[in-house]
């Protein structure tokens, strides 16, 4: 390389560098306001929540604000609170059944609808309806179905001469009735996720399975499902996190009852904070919930490779 060429290249390199620097600054400017706002609307409140969880705050009693004299009181209370323990158990049951059923039904329907056909495509749209309804409307729909005087299901049972209990006021059936409504609302999501994944399954590996003499169900079980395993995991995790947030259905259908049969942890925290104004205790319960959902979110980030360098 001659000196003259090197001298000419230097300004060009400098210019490119300047451009890159400007560009970096521009990108930072694009990002900074959003991060600032996001910090203000999400991080600060969470810090406030954690701080509150160390106080016995009851807004109706000013002396309890910013009173850190016994910081761990709420957390200790939680350990001995039978209703809190019960709410975790109810939560576990609700999550297990809703996620399990939604996965099974979602996968089943997806396999059924995974054919290239105009009509099935149109039908797919119909299946979307439950999950795009506002949750509160889903609640109203099921409230109607579970109310004996006006429910077509009850009329059918009556016509058949069967006597059935009102599910939402029965200790045995209250939780299953929530599970049923929630499954109805959300199985379309898992169905769609699985459908999307199914379309990425290459024909070749199916052909290969067929050549090896596998039947359809064998090919599905041993070839297709393992291939879309990743999606299934993510779908399950999403439903799991969402099941922790369950609120409108419980609020409308059972109010956590009868007794505490359908009182999940999130609902219990809501009652403590906004019905009885034990905000400090409710904050502590919520901190536990946030920790759990953070852990699950982290799993999702890892599984989808969002965070990792490409």
């Amino acid at each position: 390389m001659s000196l003259a060429v090197a001298a000419a290249a230097r300004p060009r390199a400098a210019k490119r560098e300047r451009l890159a620097r400007q560009r970096r600054r521009f990108l930072v400017w694009c990002l900074a306001p959003t991060l600032g706002v996001l910090m203000a609307v999400t991080l600060l409140p969470i810090l406030y929540l954690v701080a509150t969880s160390f106080t016995p705050l009851d807004p109706t009693n000013p002396a309890t604000a910013w009173n850190f004299s016994r910081p761990l009181l709420n957390y200790r209370l939680m350990l001995s609170d039978g209703r809190f323990g019960n709410s975790l158990w109810v939560q576990a049951k609700l999550s297990f059944w809703t996620v399990g059923l939604q996965m099974l039904i979602g996968i089943g329907f997806a396999l059924l609808l995974n054919l290239r056909s105009g009509m099935l495509k149109a039908l797919r749209t119909l299946f979307l309806v439950p999950m795009v309804l506002p949750p509160i409307v889903v609640g109203i729909i099921w409230k109607v179905l579970y109310t004996p005087d006006i429910s077509p299901a009850f009329w059918a049972f009556k016509a058949l001469g069967w006597k059935v209990a009102t599910p939402i006021t029965s200790a045995t059936w209250a939780l299953p009735s929530i599970i049923l409504a929630d499954t109805w609302e959300w199985f379309p999501l898992t169905m769609l996720m699985v459908l999307a994944a199914l379309q990425t399954v290459p024909e070749e590996i199916l052909d290969a399975a067929r050549v090896d003499g596998a039947r359809i169900w064998q090919a599905t079980l041993y070839v297709v499902l393992p291939y879309v395993r990743g999606t299934l995991m993510v779908a399950g995790l999403f439903r799991l996190i969402d099941s922790i947030k369950a609120f409108p259905l419980i609020y409308l259908l059972t109010d956590g009852g009868p007794g505490s049969v359908t009182e999940v942890t999130n609902y219990y925290a809501f009652e403590q904070a906004f019905n009885f104004s034990y905000v400090g205790y409710a904050s502590a319960i919520t901190v536990v919930l946030v920790t759990v959902s953070l852990a699950l979110s982290w799993l999702i980030v890892r599984l989808t490779g969002w965070g990792a360098d490409e």
């Binding site: 996001l38 999400t42 922790i244 904070a273 319960i285 699950l296 980030v301 965070g307």
Partner: peptide, 30 residues
């Protein structure tokens, strides 16, 4: 941007998925 940060991703996902009481309580108080 070339670099990705795990923490940032987690933060954004988690704020989308956090239980609603987590925000309702501090917002109500504030």
């Amino acid at each position: 941007m070339r670099r990705r940060s795990d923490a940032l991703s987690l933060w954004i996902v988690a704020s989308r998925l956090a239980p609603p009481t987590a925000f309702a309580i501090p917002y109500f108080l504030a």
